[in-house]
Amino acid sequence: MIIYIKYMVSLRCKLVVKEELKKLGLHYINVDLGTVEILEDITQKQKKELKKNLLKYGLELLDDRRNILIEKIKSVIIEMIHYSDELPKVNYSDYISEQLGYDYTYLSNIFSEVKGITIQQFIIIHKIERVKELLLYDELNLTEISYQLHYSSVSHLSNQFKKITGLTPSYYKKIKKMRRRNLEDL
């Protein structure tokens, strides 16, 4: 049986879900971002208890088909940008459509209708979050980051970064270093 969980976007979320399933005596086969495959059928009592326990951590069990599909779209994007070593070589629209087995226009319309932003805007937001992470790790320069995240140029990345954050990538990196230094002085 597969259950769907909203706001499950990190490894920490996976650990929380595994622990809550264990408390209820449920055995999982697979725990992924947004989905959990459990071995047995879940009773209404277990489902109610799981729902209550997950809410304490800001996670939500999903029952509605549209919300489940939205969470699947988000999971594919988050996995693609934050957890894979290399972004797909094909268009994101083709990749998402292929991963979920739905026409991209259909996915895009539902996503926009429910979330109030386009899939493309969601991708951009997550790419910028990934850029922030990579800037703070200080292992790659901006040219390498733009290449890794499939930006057409450093200029394109910088413009998008500034549009989303209000800061240039170099200024963002500088203030983070200053903040870290100030904390070390305490």
Rank of each mutant, 00 (worst) to 15 (best):
E37M: 03
I38M: 12
I38G: 07
L39V: 10
L39G: 05
L39T: 09
E40R: 12
E40P: 05
E40H: 12
E40L: 09
D41F: 11
I42W: 08
Q46V: 01
K47D: 11
K47Y: 13
K48P: 00
K48L: 07
L50I: 10
L54F: 05
L59Y: 09
L59I: 13
E60A: 07
E60F: 15
E60N: 14
E60S: 09
E60L: 14
L61E: 13
L62Q: 08
L62G: 11
D64I: 03
N67C: 03
N67W: 10
N67M: 12
N67K: 12
I68L: 11
I68V: 15
I68N: 14
E71N: 15
E71M: 11
E71A: 10
I73C: 06
K74W: 03
S75G: 15
V76F: 04
V76R: 05
V76S: 01
V76H: 01
I77D: 05
I78P: 03
E79R: 14
M80L: 14
I81N: 00
I81H: 00
Y83T: 02
Y83H: 05
S84C: 08
S84Q: 14
S84E: 15
S84D: 10
L87E: 09
L87H: 07
L87M: 10
L87P: 07
P88V: 04
K89H: 13
N91L: 12
N91Y: 09
N91S: 14
I96H: 02
I96S: 06
I96D: 05
S97V: 10
E98H: 10
Q99D: 01
L100G: 09
G101Y: 08
D103A: 03
Y104W: 05
Y104K: 08
Y104M: 02
Y104V: 06
Y106F: 13
L107N: 03
N109H: 08
I110M: 06
I110T: 02
I110A: 02
I110D: 04
F111T: 02
F111C: 04
S112L: 12
E113A: 14
E113N: 15
V114H: 09
V114N: 06
V114M: 13
K115R: 14
K115H: 03
I117G: 05
I117F: 04
I119T: 02
I119A: 01
I119Q: 02
Q120N: 14
Q120F: 11
Q121A: 13
F122Q: 03
I123G: 01
H126R: 07
H126E: 09
H126T: 02
K127P: 02
I128A: 01
I128T: 00
E129S: 14
R130V: 00
R130Q: 10
V131M: 03
K132Y: 04
L134A: 06
L136E: 11
D138G: 11
L142S: 07
L142M: 12
L142I: 15
T143L: 09
E144F: 00
I145F: 05
I145T: 02
I145M: 05
I145K: 08
S146H: 04
L149T: 00
L149W: 00
H150L: 07
V154Y: 14
